[in-house]
Design a protein around this nucleic acid. Sequence first.
DNA 1: CTTTTTTCCTAAACTACTTCATCTTGTTTT
DNA 2: AAAACAAGATGAAGTAGTTTAGGAAAAAAG
Lengths: 194, 194
Amino acid sequence: MGKSQLLEYVKNFVSLTKVEEEQFSSSFEEVKVKKKQLIVQPNFPDRHRRFVIKGALRTYTVAQDGQEHTIQFAIENWWASDFNSYIYQHPATLFIIALENSTILQLEFEKEQELKRSNHKFETLFRILAEKGLAFEHRRIIFNLTHSAEARYENFLLNFPNFVQRVPQYALASYLGMTTEFLSRIRNKRTQKS
Amino acid sequence: MGKSQLLEYVKNFVSLTKVEEEQFSSSFEEVKVKKKQLIVQPNFPDRHRRFVIKGALRTYTVAQDGQEHTIQFAIENWWASDFNSYIYQHPATLFIIALENSTILQLEFEKEQELKRSNHKFETLFRILAEKGLAFEHRRIIFNLTHSAEARYENFLLNFPNFVQRVPQYALASYLGMTTEFLSRIRNKRTQKS
DNA sequence: CTTTTTTCCTAAACTACTTCATCTTGTTTT
DNA sequence: AAAACAAGATGAAGTAGTTTAGGAAAAAAG
């Protein structure tokens, strides 16, 4: 069952008693989604924080000119939400779609509030998750500001080798802030070298 | 005194008793810094979370090629740290410098841990701050991925009109991911129009 | 297994943005 | 107030990355 996987993950950040573990994991609901299924859509609030047990998700936006831009990928043990929508419970602006048949654990917004209210430890956990997320996005902003398209791709390869095989190239290109054609060129140049 | 300003700010997120307010604000230390003074430097861990009472700070990095890239600005009622350095207490990679003579409130890392440990409310506060920060950086990443240099400048003008007058152009340009020359041209084009 | 759809590759023309170099203006320092 | 320095403006040349268009390969659907 996916819930033990979630608890295993959570152990990295807080230590829970059996009772707390039960309270925590039973607040989540396990859901299966098929490849290409949309999980979040613009205009509707994103009502869940979700944790990937198995599979792969892609969060993206569609700009005025119709171009898609990938904001985030999530595979096993990553989180995926339209975070701005979720925490403020405003209408979403992002899409989340399954790249593979996936199993996810969903936590409803109100249940999360309840968890945080009921126990200091859960508050701590969500604080740590937010801080880690913020630190991660900070590193991403810094790297994007300071590096070329090619360096951004190299860096992604290095840091997330297991993502590269699983996400389509057009999605990766738009995550890295370049066109799929340009990424194709970069890849080709690389394989010729080595 | 600056501490009442901090407490006023904090009221937006949690409501504290008088005793809690006292405990919270007395954990901060008020510091004055002169224009051009360095507050954080690479290689030393950033030991503080800091809140700007008055003045303006700039967080930036220096890339291998010597180019400076602005990561963040902070004026009154904003926070400034090398967040990756602060939360993990690793060596900093960023500089923080005063753009004006400034008054700031500093919270030491260990004191923050103590606050969070001692009272659920403080844990909640820091959780909310991290979540708001994460949501903000998410919006920034999305906007940067989806808009041209000119649109990024327009957007900054719109969202932070009071920053624009107070930060030097070269710093703003590198925050927005373009050269100072290019920003100069954008500005010039605009003023001719209107 | 065949057809249809989606993804990926290649190449040439194009453009948003950079680089470099010089000049003017504004800000610090003495 | 002059000298020294840092910031901003402007022009011309260069380049990283985009756009468009066509075809090949791979994956999904029937």
